[in-house]
Design a binder for these strands. Sequence first.
DNA 1: CTGAAAGCGCTTACAG
DNA 2: CTGAAAGCGCTTACAG
Lengths: 346, 346
Amino acid sequence: MATMQDVSRRAGVAVSTVSRVLNGTAKISQATKDAVFQAVEELNYRPNVLAQSLSKQQTNTIGLVIPRGAAVSQYLSQLIEKCQETADQNGKFLLISQAFNQPDGAVQSIRALVDRRCDAVLYYHNSFFEQNNLSEDVLSDLIDEFQVPLVVINRQLPRHPNHSVWLDNVKNASLPVEYCLKQGHQRIAYIAAPLKQKTSQDRLLGYQQALAAYELEVDPLLISQAERSYQGGYQACRQLLQNSTDFTALCCFNDQMAIGALKALHEAGLSVPEDVSLFGLDNEDILDFFEPGISSVSQPTHEFVTHAMQLLLAHLTNSPVPDSRHNAFSGQLVLRGSVRSLNNKS
Amino acid sequence: MATMQDVSRRAGVAVSTVSRVLNGTAKISQATKDAVFQAVEELNYRPNVLAQSLSKQQTNTIGLVIPRGAAVSQYLSQLIEKCQETADQNGKFLLISQAFNQPDGAVQSIRALVDRRCDAVLYYHNSFFEQNNLSEDVLSDLIDEFQVPLVVINRQLPRHPNHSVWLDNVKNASLPVEYCLKQGHQRIAYIAAPLKQKTSQDRLLGYQQALAAYELEVDPLLISQAERSYQGGYQACRQLLQNSTDFTALCCFNDQMAIGALKALHEAGLSVPEDVSLFGLDNEDILDFFEPGISSVSQPTHEFVTHAMQLLLAHLTNSPVPDSRHNAFSGQLVLRGSVRSLNNKS
DNA sequence: CTGAAAGCGCTTACAG
DNA sequence: CTGAAAGCGCTTACAG
């Protein structure tokens, strides 16, 4: 490929002049400008971004590490979209990389992006890595180690309030439970994702706390656990139905599991919401297309990622970081046909 | 950050020696090796990949351009996953970039990756760009222009059989229609995505050809068109039901639209498959969780992408390209509860 | 307004 | 086995 030197020779000027013309970084006579542009045209010249970056000590690039493999949810794709928008608005190129599928895959991937000299790196934390000993400390140490700003999404890092944003999973999971309680439900079942995952622990805690607030005991028979997938939700629900069938409401770790659970309920001859009220979490668009529509909790993806990007940009420009007292974001109930009240029953 | 020169000074050797030790590219005495590794350790040195790439004239990176925004489908995420796997297996780093959301966004994004000197670039073609004048020729010209191998996924490029793989959309869309015909259906409706998109045109053609093969006329009242989304499928189906309600089968552009259509059918008091047999296309996992399960056509994502990667790697290593006579991939029917036969009705 | 030179952080012939 | 030097393709003070 043609280099800047080729252009300079063809245009009969120095490479430094070519550079200045192309970057508009100095006053240049129209004549030489024309010559340069013509040479560029004729040679179909395009600058080598690698060389530019090395020389400028800056890549104008933001790296984003996302989890590998797991079918991309609407939630995650909205999150990516929002990162992209912000990157665009700030003239940064967004480079997306999937975390390696290994115990230390997250760390490796972050490093790979730093080694490529991204100006900043966003890491979307996935619970998968918790099962592989990726602790809070490892992430916090990385943040300390790097000159490059690193912001962690979806993981609370107390040591670095200015480098992390997360969802308040406890609260988000408690919302539907509280709502059911208010509607007079007493026997409320819960389907959890694998409890090795922090997110799953937190959401179960939300369920438990909501019950406790109403001075109800947690019945272990009303809690089931499975992989986080449609199929997992289906299996967990079948397990619940084997344990007992007297629950009148069922809250799930997320929408996918609720969708699986709905199928199991129907197969068991139970109707929603007449027999069982049902809640998911994430509020994916598809919930509207089940019968009944599945109620859920909307995640504040928008605000969440916006704040993460603000932190990132603040670090990048050495500006004061935005107020970080509220890095834990919580969502809102979205009611659909899958819920009914027991209050006017008495 | 510490540079190789820092390491060399600390270890008391030349930078060239440090380079050799780190890359294992020459016999080095154990003593100097030890000294180098210790210095690396102490300085927490990490090589600058930018500088390496510039110097080696190779980045060991494969770029992948995917469409922006549109909620990521299971199909696309499987496709990405497969690219990732192949990249991993060949020791390449996969850099994912979303196409800019502009008329020439695809071209810009490909260029951006080439400018970053990816060793090869994969472009997943999205119909969005066809509405913005991204023609076959533009892509073909790019392939001719670049030294860097470019493989286009999801777009037929006759001039470059060794640089493109695509799905046989005509055939894939005809499969469910043929099946319905064999089961005795005569009035078969179709829901299309916007017909500005080539994919949508092709699938409609598949529908039409299947009917023609049975010497049935195409009734325009049985064809409806909308955005490709759940909601679009819902609206298109309502439109159909307004036109006429005597169809006994309904085939859709994809699964999402079929899911929307199912809702509209149910709202109209029609049951599936008793009144209407229903087909989607893509075979997403979620289809099992509707009632009835929605029949579909599985896309051969796996073979499809594998072949694309083989082409890419062949170009990359200057090896002979694999047999490209069959770059058009077709899928298979997947039957679920949403279809019934009219044959034993007579 | 423009050029020569140094530098970004590596790799790799070329010598010894 | 190891070093000095040139080179990858740019940018940017430093002069003029």
